[in-house]
């Protein structure tokens, strides 16, 4: 017999919808790091990312009965997180001038550092600040693609848009980052 931790996301959601809190706990433990990382890049603040991630998981649990198992749990979950993050950004009313905090949570090993003259933390700061200067939708598409390895179709499902719109968002977002990096001499 399978352990509960071996169940798929869809199976856990089905159990959770019928009141099994252990299933919901396992789902949260499985997804809290990716969701937090996504929100931290969207919002630029660890504390706000924590707050919105908790709200995301609360909604996941309280709306579990609305989820239709279809193998697209990740899209569904990140759609909740993305919508909450964009609402949060709208409430701030300073969409393009978000100040990113610099709290470091994980430090890469020397081997994993790219071959750049910039120190890792400085590079990280450049990346986060550059992300904060593009539109929230471009940022969302870029983060889902580059940090969560989503396909264009999955990003389209998550953002409720078309694959060609995703391609356009990514193209414009990457161009904006490239110009930002050039202006700040992040790469030669």
């Amino acid at each position: 017999m399978n352990e509960i931790t071996d169940l798929t996301d869809d199976e856990l959601m089905t159990r959770g919808a019928s009141g099994d809190q252990d299933s919901l706990r396992i789902l949260i433990e499985r997804w809290e790091t990716p969701v937090f990382a996504f929100l931290e890049r969207m919002l630029g603040s660890s504390e706000e990312a924590q707050e919105i991630a908790q709200e995301t998981f609360f909604r996941m649990c309280s709306h579990a009965d609305r989820y239709r198992p279809s193998g697209r749990f990740r899209s569904w979950l990140f759609r909740i997180a993305g919508n909450l993050a964009r609402s949060k950004l709208r409430r701030r009313a300073v969409l393009r001038f978000v100040r990113f905090d610099t709290g470091i949570h994980t430090v890469p090993t020397v081997d994993s550092m790219p071959d750049h003259s910039l120190e890792y933390n400085e590079l990280r700061e450049h990346v986060r600040n550059a992300l904060s200067r593009i539109s929230p939708r471009q940022r969302q598409a870029l983060v889902l693609r580059h940090y969560h390895d989503m396909s264009y179709q999955e990003i389209a499902d998550t953002m409720k848009t078309t694959v060609s719109a995703v391609e356009s968002l990514l193209h414009r977002g990457m161009n904006a980052l490239k110009m930002d990096f050039e202006r700040r001499k992040v790469f030669p």
Binding site: A37, A53, H105, T106, V127, H146, Y147
Partner: peptide, 16 residues
Amino acid sequence: DILHADRNAIPLRPMW
């Protein structure tokens, strides 16, 4: 490559 150099952050506290 620059984007990928940035590591994922981990939650400040467990969510459950």
